[in-house]
Design a protein around this nucleic acid. Structure first.
Length: 574
RNA sequence: CGAGGUGUAGCGCAGUUGGUAGCGCGCAUGGUUCGGGACCAUGAGGCCGCGAGUUCGAGUCUCGCCACUUCGACCA
């Protein structure tokens, strides 16, 4: 490919909208063009990257006996009504009607389509297990797309669905899929991706893992134990606490605390630690706006995912009205007279000498003893794990909370979809059974962006050879010099005819422009033909990451380049 | 959905008390340059986000809407 004919523009100034590096380079390097909120077109360089990523995914899925299929993007509402998700999923799913007024949806995930495809096929246990996958467009009407290709509304995803006749068989396959995912990340140049335990959310099922690239621009928070290696999404991480100090209980005493609304204000006023207080966090159920009051130790935060899972319904922060009987800012467990579900976090269990609201304007209690003053309270884990907190596995104070980009996700689904959609098989004994499913997804564009995020310098991305849009970037500095041009043309031909992917820049532009464009395209190897080099009878052979800088004799330069590229490519084969 | 910010040429931005629409980059043409985004000359390119209003006159003031963006909320 000649660079002068490459469609798309590269430019110097960073667009104002780009806040993360991968986004800025994708726009500046002529990889993408913005179309609408969370919707992009890809130019050739990005398309070449995603094609290679997809090919790696295909190879790894085929290695674990996957069969590539394709589901439709547009599906009838009926199959989503079967699973129940037509109702349970909100605005995130795009819905519309066809000319006959039949309701349709845009695919945002394909469990329903997968069950639909194989439910006649899988009628006997002898056909199991099997896995089908596709690489295809999804549309999710996300509330807030951000960070360029990291979070978009329309995207390409590799999604796989496996079907099993026992939980044990699913678990065995799940483990194989996990390993395949690790190979995929290693092959695309991100061996540092880790898997963490996650919350299953709308997908259902029990066990699930997310694959995370740790980076400051990530949207998820990951709790990692530096001692035993425990890793979990903060949403799913259990919050473990030290046993409370065994101090003598004081008397429950009502104190005047004017204008003390927040727990910090009250504790500052009463000169105590926030950890010695019991704060109330109030939510409302989305369905009927009924109140949920959750008491938790003052220094901790509520993990709303845990709360949602416990309640089995969605919630939002409460708007507190006078009729509710809740005295905002002065809520406490003693004498609370409100129509609300009252819950207690484990952090309060066996605690005493706490400060809490007195359910009366401008008054708090001191000396609250949970066991003595709050009879019959049931304690559950609703708290968010904190940096420096206790590891739920090894029990040491060794938790670090880091940010991460979710670059993949695998789930043990169980029978949620096969049951609801009536997919059954006959087992060995002639009994009707529901197959057990697993599902496995990776976003292609997000992975490409994550690679750029993890591998770049101030000038542009540094693509790993396995996914680079081209393998060699050939620069002919002063291509107006016939000798230069003739040699570079010949080199271009030799490399191409050996199957090397070359982007060839023979434009009559200054070296600065040429190198800046090359940096933005991030091609891992660069060959420079120039008057200076020509005079010494050499060409320059460098790597984009600047770890290699060699000079090659004019004669045989092509062979050297081919040898190096092939050797490096082999390192990505696993 | 909540709170902030921003909408002026392809990109980055300026535009004062309301008075003919500007700069840099990029683009086109010609010339001089040539190893890290060179220089000179000439030129093309605008529904000043959209709609009302105030005014002799609005990029500028008022009201409404829309879009983008940041932080939350939400999210396989």
């Amino acid at each position: 490919m000649k660079l002068d004919k490459l469609v798309g523009e590269r430019f110097k100034e960073k667009p104002a909208d780009c806040v993360v590096d991968s986004h800025a380079f994708m726009v500046r390097g002529g990889y993408v063009k913005y179309v609408a909120n969370g919707i992009f077109s890809s130019f050739t360089p990005l398309k070449r990257v995603t094609k290679k990523i997809e090919q790696i995914m295909r190879e790894e899925m085929d290695l674990i006996d996957g069969q590539e299929v394709q589901f439709p993007v547009v599906m009838p509402a009926s199959i989503w009504q079967e699973s129940g998700r037509y109702k349970s999923i909100g605005k995130e799913m795009a819905r519309f009607n066809d000319r006959n007024n039949s309701p349709l949806v845009l695919g945002m995930t394909h469990e329903e389509a997968a069950v639909h495809l194989v439910r006649e096929y899988g009628q006997t246990y002898a056909k199991y297990p099997f896995m089908i996958y596709q690489i295809q467009t999804k549309f999710r009407d996300e509330a807030r797309p951000r960070a360029g290709l990291i979070r978009v509304r329309e995207f390409t995803m590799k999604d796989a669905y496996s079907f099993h006749t026992s939980q044990a068989d699913l678990e065995q396959y799940y483990d194989k899929a996990h390993k395949a995912y690790e190979r995929i990340y290693a092959r695309v140049g991100l061996p540092e991706v880790i898997s963490v335990k996650s919350d299953s959310g709308m997908m259902g099922g029990s066990i699930s893992h997310e694959f995370m690239l740790l980076t400051a621009i990530g949207e998820d928070s990951i709790a990692i134990c530096n001692d035993c290696g425990y890793r979990a999404n903060v949403e799913a991480a259990e919050c473990v606490l030290d046993a409370p100090a065994n101090a003598k209980s004081e008397k429950l005493t009502k104190v005047h605390t004017p204008n003390g609304h927040t727990i910090e204000e009250v504790c500052a006023f009463l000169k105590c630690e926030t950890a010695a207080s019991c704060k109330a966090v109030v939510y409302q159920r989305n369905a009927d706006d009924s109140y949920v009051v959750l008491f938790i130790r003052g220094d901790l935060e509520v993990n709303e995912t845990k709360l949602t899972n416990y309640l089995g319904c969605d919630i939002h922060p409460a708007v507190i009205t006078e009729e509710s009987g809740i005295v905002a800012g002065f809520i406490g467990p003693v004498g609370l007279n409100a129509k609300a579900t009252v819950l207690y976090d484990r952090s309060l269990q066996n605690m005493n000498n706490l400060v809490c609201g007195a359910n009366e304007n401008d008054y708090h209690y001191t000396g609250l003893d949970m066991a003595r003053d709050v009879k019959g309270a049931e304690y559950n884990d609703f708290a968010k794990i904190v940096d420096g907190g206790i590891c739920p596995v090894c029990g040491k104070h060794s938790i670090t909370v880091s940010r991460g980009i979710e670059v993949g996700n695998i789930f043990q689904l169980g029978t949620k979809y096969t049951k609801s959609m009536g997919m059954t098989y006959l087992d060995n004994d002639g009994n009707s059974q529901y197959p057990i499913m697993g599902c496995y997804g990776i976003g292609v564009g997000r992975l490409a962006a994550a690679i750029a995020e993890a591998h770049h310098d101030g000038y542009g991305p540094i693509w790993p050879l396995s996914v680079a849009p081209w393998q060699v970037h050939l620069c002919a500095v002063r291509a107006d010099d016939p000798e230069i041009k003739a040699y570079a043309d010949k080199l271009y031909e030799s490399l191409q005819s050996s199957g090397i992917e070359v982007i060839y820049d023979d434009r009559n532009v200054s070296a600065g422009v040429m190198f800046s464009d090359a940096d933005l395209l991030g091609v891992p190897y660069r060959v420079i033909v120039s008057p200076r080099n020509m005079k010494s009878g050499v060409v320059e052979f460098t790597s984009r990451d600047k770890t290699m800088k060699e000079t090659l004799e004019l004669n045989g330069a092509a062979d050297e380049v081919i040898k190096t590229v092939r050797a490096e490519l082999n390192k990505f084969k696993m």
